[in-house]
Design a protein around this nucleic acid. Structure first.
Length: 254
DNA sequence: GCCGTTGTTGAAGA
DNA sequence: CTCTTCAACAACGG
């Protein structure tokens, strides 16, 4: 689930639910999700701290406090929820921060990622600029220096941070470009188009907190038994590209 | 038991 | 060195 738009939604949840409030209690139900610090140390460092304005970089959420910062990554199945304290716990709730009146819950089925109570600069040192902060000139520069495929470049977090498998497919489909194109082989006009679609897909998705599963979007048809293009009605293709399933329209995308 | 999964990583190969 | 693929991580659904 979580790509840039989802994580931006989690950031808004965190801000509205807990900003300015004090952490009363830290519960770790499953220490598998803690990286670089155990449950004891996490509780000691966070209990009594006041939550500050949260930030996001790519798919990372920075939980700022008046003391240490904790970085959250949601892997494929992670969520951040703001719950009333009397709401029953879910079996996949791994860490719970109690603030006044609410509980912030890190819920994750698969535990592929988790919490890093660590120096943000160190954890984010391998990340490229956030995809929403990347200007056209830098985008062009970065693609032109690339030897591999276009989709794998878009998903490479060290080049630009935030795009995953679904957003990359949606952006490429909107820009009418094939995922297998060489990253450095686009014309000036194609780069401009790609950059514009990148921004518009992210902007719309951030509004909804996910890629909108609308029938007019490619992502709305990914899981159809016999998926067809919502633009030209041609049959969509599924290919294994850069280790993930790419869905694209051979008729619309060049 | 098989396959697949909106993510990332390290190892191995091209 | 650059880039890609692969297996692994863990848990679940079809």
């Amino acid at each position: 689930m979580p790509e840039l738009p989802d994580v931006e939604g989690f950031r808004e949840i965190l801000a509205s639910c807990a900003r300015g409030r004090r952490i009363k209690r830290v519960e770790v139900m499953d220490a598998d999700v803690l990286h670089g610090a155990g449950a004891r140390r996490l509780a000691r460092e966070l209990t009594g701290r006041r939550l500050a304005e949260p930030e996001r970089h790519g798919k990372w959420l920075l939980v700022r406090t008046d003391g240490p910062t904790v970085l959250l990554h949601f892997g494929m199945t992670g969520l951040l929820l703001c719950c009333d304290a009397d709401e029953p716990r879910h079996r996949h709730d791994r860490v719970v921060l109690t603030v006044d009146g609410h509980e912030l819950r890190y819920r994750d089925q698969r535990k592929l990622r988790g919490l890093w109570p660590d120096d943000p600069d160190r954890v984010l040192s391998d990340q490229g600029p956030d995809a929403m902060d990347l200007g056209l000139a830098d985008f062009r520069e970065l693609l032109s220096a690339r030897r591999g495929g276009l989709k794998s470049a878009l998903m490479n977090q060290s080049l630009l941070a935030g795009l995953g498998n679904l957003t990359a497919d949606e952006i490429l489909w909107r820009a009418r470009l094939r995922p297998s194109r060489a990253a450095s082989g686009l014309t000036g006009e194609e780069v401009r188009r790609l950059h514009a679609r990148l921004r518009s897909v992210l902007r719309s998705s951030i509004r909804v907190g996910q890629i909108p599963p609308r029938p007019s979007w490619l992502t709305g048809h990914r899981d159809d038994a016999d998926p067809h293009c919502p633009r030209c009605d041609g049959r969509l293709r599924r290919d294994r590209i850069a280790g993930r399933t790419a869905v694209w329209c051979p008729a619309c995308q060049r």
